[in-house]
Amino acid sequence: MRWFWIDRFEEFESGRRAVALKNVTMAEEHLHDHFPGFPVMPASLMIEGMAQTAGILVGEARGFREKVILAKIRRATFEGIAGPGQQLRYEAVIETLSDAGAQTTGTVTCDGREIGRVDLMFSHIDRNMSGLAFPEENFVFTEDFMGLLGTYLPGRGGAG
């Protein structure tokens, strides 16, 4: 299994907002344990889906030069559930973007109904670790991940 919790971007406005989709399927191992006989997409993985949506949005805003790390879940509330056969839609909006990092707000909808809100904070870690060195290469935004952006970033691979 690969650590992708979004399937593709549906909308991408550089530096402002992004919408990503995720189809929930019974092929996902975790749904068989969460819960046996009653498969529900775990809220923690919906937070991860939002983090991937918002993280790529924040990274793209600075040309993927920064290592963007999820630093804090400022708020996560869920009022509904999602299961196999349903489609999740993650909408992330940049609230603040600075040299040090970014804050985003986000809504999670399932088949058109809002089921959650997830507000996040990201750190540009090279600028926040008081001189601690990290690897030169950007280990956050690997080529695999960039493929998700597909048609939104001409010249990069992936089906959009």
Partner: peptide, 21 residues
């Protein structure tokens, strides 16, 4: 430590100010 960045962001918004790093 990471909360300090959060506090800076929130104060900037709450008071409509810019807090240089």
């Amino acid at each position: 430590s990471i909360d300090f960045l959060d506090i800076v962001f929130r104060l900037e918004k709450s008071f409509s100010i810019k807090i240089p790093r």
